[in-house]
Amino acid sequence: MSVREIRLFGDPILVTPSAEILDFASAAGLIQDLIDTTSLSGRAGVAATQIGVGLSAFAYNVQGQIGYLINPKITELSGGLIPMEEGCLSVPGLWHPAIRHTIAKASGFLLDGSAIEISGEGLMAQALQHEIDHLSGVLYLDRLEKQERKLAFKALREQVWFTR
Rank of each mutant, 00 (worst) to 15 (best):
R4W: 12
G64S: 08
I31V: 15
I6A: 10
A27I: 01
G10C: 07
L14H: 01
Q63E: 15
G10R: 03
S41A: 08
T16H: 06
A48T: 06
R7E: 03
I66D: 03
A28K: 14
I35S: 12
Q63L: 12
I21M: 07
I51G: 00
D33W: 11
L55P: 02
I51Y: 00
L40E: 14
G29M: 10
V53L: 10
Q50C: 07
D33T: 11
E20A: 14
S39Y: 09
L22C: 05
G67Y: 03
G67I: 10
V46Q: 09
D23I: 03
L8T: 01
R43V: 15
V46P: 05
V46F: 04
I6C: 06
S41F: 06
Q32E: 15
T38S: 12
A47V: 09
A48H: 05
D23P: 06
I6K: 12
D36L: 14
A48R: 09
V15T: 15
Q50F: 07
G64P: 07
A59K: 00
A47C: 13
L22S: 13
I51H: 04
Y68G: 05
F9W: 14
S41C: 01
P12S: 04
S39T: 09
R7G: 02
L22G: 14
V62Y: 04
S18D: 01
V53I: 15
D11V: 00
A25N: 11
I66N: 08
D23F: 04
T38I: 03
P17A: 03
F24L: 11
L55D: 08
S18K: 02
A48Q: 02
A19V: 12
A44R: 13
A57W: 05
D33R: 12
I51P: 01
S41D: 12
R43N: 14
L55C: 07
A27T: 03
A59F: 06
V15S: 14
S26C: 08
T38A: 15
I6H: 05
V15G: 07
Q63D: 15
D11A: 08
S26I: 02
A44C: 11
D33F: 04
D36I: 09
D11F: 00
S18N: 08
R43K: 15
I35N: 09
R43D: 01
L22M: 12
I21E: 04
T49D: 04
V62K: 08
D33I: 11
A27E: 10
Q50W: 11
T37S: 14
G29E: 13
I31L: 06
S26K: 11
S41M: 09
V46H: 04
P12N: 06
G42F: 07
Q50Y: 10
V53R: 06
D11R: 00
L55V: 10
A28C: 00
A27P: 00
Y68E: 03
I35K: 12
T49I: 13
G29K: 13
L55R: 10
F9M: 11
V46W: 02
T37K: 07
L22T: 15
V53E: 07
G52T: 13
D11S: 07
T38Y: 00
S41R: 06
Q63P: 02
T37W: 09
P12R: 05
I21R: 01
Q63T: 12
